[in-house]
Nucleic acid binder design. Structure first.
Length: 109
DNA sequence: TGGTTGACTAAGT
DNA sequence: CACTTAGCCAACC
């Protein structure tokens, strides 16, 4: 692998794929793991192209556990359904018990 | 080359 | 407690 030739987006996709089943993380956490703690927005922007990738974008939410990116999924509640299918409690687009399932790459890896 | 965009975040009102 | 403002930075046009 040659990350130096890969765009920032590609790095984001790689980290997103590492998110364990039934866990979620935030854009900022991924950015921090990539060494760009202040590039949380770039991570979100990157996920725009995640549709064609095998990236579990539904496991990436904002810092409050809110499904801010659900509008980028097909249905209106697809993102929530995917999460609930993994055992994640989601109510009103917000993840419940977030601290229990929160996954931080810089700590877990 | 330069300006616009955005699935963010923290701080302020 | 809910909304607004401002800083942030890589990709895109």
């Amino acid at each position: 692998m040659k990350p130096e030739t890969e765009s920032f987006f590609e790095r984001v996709y790689e980290v997103a794929r590492l998110i364990p089943y039934g866990r979620v993380t935030s854009y900022g956490a991924i950015a921090k793991y990539l060494g760009a703690a202040r590039s949380a927005r770039i991570v979100g922007y990157a996920m725009n192209g995640s549709s064609d990738k095998d990236v579990p974008a539904h496991r990436v939410v904002n810092r409050k556990g809110l499904l801010t990116g659900k509008h980028h999924f097909e249905g209106t509640n697809l993102m929530q359904q995917l999460l609930e299918n993994e055992g994640v409690e989601v109510v009103d687009n917000q993840i419940q018990n977030l601290e229990s399932i929160y996954w931080e790459p810089s700590k877990e890896l």
